[in-house]
């Protein structure tokens, strides 16, 4: 190979970058984070499956309903009523942001900016 040295260095970098996730994870195992669920509640606002996938959408709708439409009561699919509020509803049941929301969000690599303004149940840091 002409210029073989340089080409091989290039290939090593290419393959190395591609396989780096495999290398960094050698011998590791991954489990979904364990969440601290509310002790004396059985059900969330909506079904478990809905909450896992669509809670951000729900919060977004809540925000719009509360602040734009002035609608502050949410009726879920079972007809149960909830006050539309991040701090006073979600965080009344999910008492710890660190043990609940953050557990997933750290692993998923998202950091919702809501807490720039809203106060987490742990209080201000």
């Amino acid at each position: 190979m002409h210029y073989g040295g340089k080409i091989i260095i290039g290939i090593v970098i290419f393959v190395g970058l591609l396989l780096s996730p495999f290398v960094f994870n050698v011998g590791k195992a991954y489990k979904q984070p364990e969440l601290k669920l509310p002790a004396n509640e059985k059900k969330c606002v909506e079904s478990l499956e809905f909450m896992r996938t669509k809670h951000m959408q729900l919060l977004n709708e809540w925000r719009d309903w509360a602040l734009r439409d002035g609608k502050r009561v949410y009726v879920n699919h079972e007809g149960k009523e909830f006050e539309i509020s991040l701090q006073n509803t979600c965080m009344k049941c999910h008492k710890s942001k660190a043990d609940f929301c953050d557990k997933c969000h750290n692993d998923a690599g998202v950091s919702p900016y809501c807490w720039d303004c809203h106060i987490q149940p742990e209080g201000l840091k």
Partner: peptide, 9 residues
């Protein structure tokens, strides 16, 4: 809207 945590698993 998929379950990102399950996908990460």
């Amino acid at each position: 809207k998929v379950d990102v945590m399950a996908i990460k698993e």
